[in-house]
Design a protein around this nucleic acid. Structure first.
Lengths: 199, 199, 199, 199
DNA sequence: TATGAATGAGTCTTCATTCAT
DNA sequence: AATGAATGAAGACTCATTCAT
């Protein structure tokens, strides 16, 4: 813990994240990070022993910062449909973002280094967290009779798979904003009670 | 017409596929393939100039062999629900398969070598092909009054994202067969007409 | 000797010469020659064991064909100045030629494979032959009182060095036709008797 | 200012020059230089990226060191004939030297890597520099009535071709010291005023 | 004779990692 | 703590040469 300068450690992680965002995980060498940080080779090794170690750290801090985002939705004072849209818009941002995006690096990292425990797997944690939040939103929406949904958790899981699917599609062959919007709309339209439904 | 012996070419591709299935794309060296094929370094270069070239070929032949599977569904003489289940079971096999599975290699390859044209992207092609097949199944199911679905193509797209999502989840943190079954059931249950549904 | 087809041998040499003219000696591989000849690898080895062997043969035949040119000068029926100019024009052609020119290849070959005996060295043979021809021309010119020259052989040697110098300069940094002409004129002007020279 | 240790850089160049002197340019591999320097493969790449890069450097430093020699002639306090002999003796040394001689390597290098600009061509620069120095010597000699020479520059150019010719002949088939002496004498004898020449 | 697939030795080049300063 | 020169293992790639057909 009390090892070397914590400040420098953070600095390296910040710079390294930029490198991973640009080059993915596999193409990044220690030299790349050394150059991005403008420190010496030996200096970097004083803090981290490999790109893997560095990336693991970045992933950790990502997880922490994202948790805040996620929990904030339920505190909003508005309809559950609004809150759901807020959640989905956040996901849309993640799906479409270009800058500071370590999604590809994360996949590459996971392909190469499967964590022993699922609980150490960022993607899994994010996925489960998403299901939990969505479930709560849906349950509350159902309670308030805004949404129609027989099994909130099953629906939440389904939605998370859709989002995960869009995320990987966006990274492998590209998905336009229009397509994301259309898909999110399709999800929501399947949930909201159609008030004037006479058929 | 082909260069050198077509037979050996196929042999190399077969062995190489095993290597890619085991190690992904990025970790595979020409040496790995040379050893798997038990041929000489120079001998391999006679047929392929790089792991990329080899993998591209494998991807091509995958695409071809899969196309057959896909088109076969509509010729079946059975209910559309059966056909849909057949399609989904095929997808389930893809999601869960362990042997001869080059899914991770394919993602790694695509991350490193984005094709200039979308039409050259295997994952994209498979995705679009899936939407087409599913749309046809759904439309026919709706016509036969087996399924309820307002917009067949939108639903097909949605299902494909779910499948894609499960595929990547299976590769990043693992998904149990039970979870896949549950998800596929959820998809189907949202489509089939509930005959005696009075509530 | 009575080995294989003499005709094919000649064909290979002809094609190979084109390759050497284009790529020099060092850059030429057996593969290059195989491709230029449109024969098989094994087929080429039936006739020649290496690029060196091939080039040596080419050099031999060059030597033979050039000897004819050289000896022809003295049979001309004209002034010795005319004959000298003829000889120098031939040299000029050699210095400036671009097509079918294996000069560079020859130097590269000699740098890498010094012949044991000087008499096997093409450049040496050409050089000595040049001196002999020039000496005869000069001696005859002196006899006819066309030229002024105290030591014909020394002058001939000097001229040959100049020509050799221009040859290598042309290949290393390029020499314009104008410069060659000027130089040849300078050589000749130092030889011819200035009839009306009173100063 | 330079990269890494300037001292080691010089050391590598020194050792590499020995290698080039012994093997020419084309036969030299990075491995050869690594072994001559007794450093590691990676270590060499820290300083130079290819044999070409190394040789270019050697050529540069050669050029610099030779310039000094050349300019020193005119400062001598002696007859112009002495100065001319000094210049020619220097050239003789170059023509005949065996140790530390990168002449062949230089030709091989130039054959393989023609510089875009003539001014970057070492042989050309040396040739032109030689013409300039010789021209000055001859002009001064004529002014002092030591030499007879109608066109100093033309004569200088002619002499340089002779020297260049001897240089290449020495490298391709060998020229004895006697022959060089005889040739240089012939050049000088054509220039000096024959004071008591009555015949 | 002729073919051309196959071999493997040899070079180039990059990178993680160490270590004297 | 920090530096950055140095190392050497590992992978890519080419080519002369052989050999079964």
């Amino acid at each position: 813990m009390g090892e070397k300068s914590e400040q420098k450690r953070e600095y390296i992680l910040k710079r390294a994240k930029e490198v991973f965002a640009k080059k993915g995980f596999r193409d990044v060498t220690m030299k790349d990070i050394v150059e991005a940080c403008e420190i010496s080779r030996g200096g970097l090794y004083l803090y981290f022993g490999s790109t893997e170690e560095i990336f693991k750290e970045i992933l950790m801090s990502e997880l922490e910062s994202e948790e805040d985002d996620v929990t904030s939705y339920l505190t909003e004072d508005s309809t559950m449909a609004d809150i759901l849209m807020l959640f989905l818009k956040e996901q849309k941002k993640i799906i479409l973002r270009k800058k500071q995006d370590i999604t590809i690096a994360t996949y590459e990292y996971l392909f190469a280094h499967k964590p022993e425990k699922k609980s150490q797997n960022v993607v899994y944690n994010q996925f489960e967290a998403g299901i939990m939040v969505l479930t709560k939103i849906l349950e509350e929406g159902v309670r308030r009779e805004e949404f129609y949904c027989e099994n909130a958790e099953a629906e939440a899981t389904n939605i998370m798979y859709v989002l995960e699917g869009m995320k990987i599609c966006a990274k492998t062959f590209g998905v336009s904003e229009r397509k994301v919007d259309r898909e999110l709309l399709y999800i929501v339209s399947g949930l909201v009670m159609e008030e004037d439904d006479g058929q």
